[in-house]
């Protein structure tokens, strides 16, 4: 009974936040609504007993995306056009028809999915039967590595493409350098950083390690590590460099390279491509993915080809 009440409030809140995101007058308000929308989505995933998705949504959907949106807002204010309230959102009247069409689409897809006969031997069932062979005890990680390896590889390619796209655009419309943070020298900030940044590293490594047996994995860990990097950028400890160092260039492609190479080596030795030959390979690939994800996200946040220690 109380569960139903919570779910109803959550569902109404999600729809309301989505509507407010597309309906609000100011860009800033729309961004905040979108961040709250992400938080509510992560609560909804938790209520649906999908902690993996809840973690990913909170870390990436609300956390990192929120930070990217807010830093974009700041750049628009400092360097953007004169109407610094952001571009007027003129398409508000479109919100209702688009929302109705989307709702109709969701209903049609949901109805169709409910009509489909249950298929025996889905990826989840097969994974649950053969968890020992895969070498991890978390079925979500098992499905991702056993059946969705191409998806994970392509997600890394998409992330790399996003970063390359941002680089290409940045050379055309050079994003101006933001004025240095006024609070860089506040003693409290240094104390907080010296505690929170090591904790972000610890939690990232824990999430990576836990991914084998519990909710977690490279994307969630990468987002948490990136949050530590974003904090260092925000407080002026890291600043944009004009050129990427060799280490950063390697770091950005590390995940894609290690994953593809492992897959190709497996194929050369007679196995199917991307079939990971054991637990060590899983952790090798996941570690490379985590480093690449974190570095790419921080570089996207800084809108810079590289980073360097602030003097």
């Amino acid at each position: 009974m109380i569960g139903l009440a919570i779910d109803s409030v959550l569902a109404l809140g999600i729809v309301w936040m989505a509507l407010q995101t597309v309906r609000s007058d100011s860009l800033f308000q729309a961004m905040l609504m979108f961040i709250v929308f992400g938080l509510l989505m992560s609560l909804a995933w938790a209520r649906l007993h999908a902690p993996d998705l809840a973690l990913a949504e909170a870390a990436i959907g609300a956390g990192i995306t929120g930070a990217l949106l807010l830093v974009t807002w700041r750049r628009l204010q400092v360097h953007g056009p004169d109407d610094s309230n952001g571009p007027r959102l003129m398409t508000r009247w479109l919100a209702l028809p688009i929302a109705c069409a989307s709702a109709l689409l969701v209903i049609i897809i949901g109805w169709t999915a409910l009509q489909l006969p249950a298929v025996p031997g889905t990826a989840g069932e097969l994974t649950l039967q053969r968890l020992e062979d895969i070498g991890v005890s978390n079925p979500v990680t098992g499905v991702l590595l056993g059946f969705r390896a191409y998806d994970t590889l392509m997600e890394m390619a998409v992330l790399l493409a996003a970063w390359l796209g941002a680089r290409a655009v940045a050379t055309e419309f050079r994003p101006g350098v933001l004025p240095g943070p006024a609070h860089a020298e506040v003693p409290l900030v240094g104390a907080l950083l010296s505690l929170v940044v090591p904790i972000s590293i610890l939690v990232a490594v824990y999430l990576l390690q836990a991914g084998g047996s519990a909710p977690g994995g490279a994307f969630q860990g990468g987002a948490v590590l990136a949050a530590g990097g974003v904090l260092l950028c925000l407080t002026g400890r890291l600043e944009a460099a004009a050129q990427a160092s060799a280490l950063e260039r390697v770091g950005v492609i590390l995940g894609l390279a290690v994953f593809s190479l492992t897959g190709l080596i497996v194929m050369a030795t007679g196995g199917p491509m991307l079939a990971l030959p054991g637990v060590w390979a899983i952790y090798l690939v996941e570690t490379a993915l985590l480093l690449s994800i974190a570095l790419t996200l921080v570089l996207l946040f800084a809108a810079a080809p590289g980073l360097r220690r602030a003097p």
């Binding site: 006024a182 609070h183 900030v189 104390a191 907080l192 929170v196």
Partner: peptide, 20 residues
Amino acid sequence: ILGLLAATVSCHLIARRAIR
């Protein structure tokens, strides 16, 4: 403890910015 630390520092920074 982490919630306390984050709230303390962000409160301090917001108040500082408001004064400045």
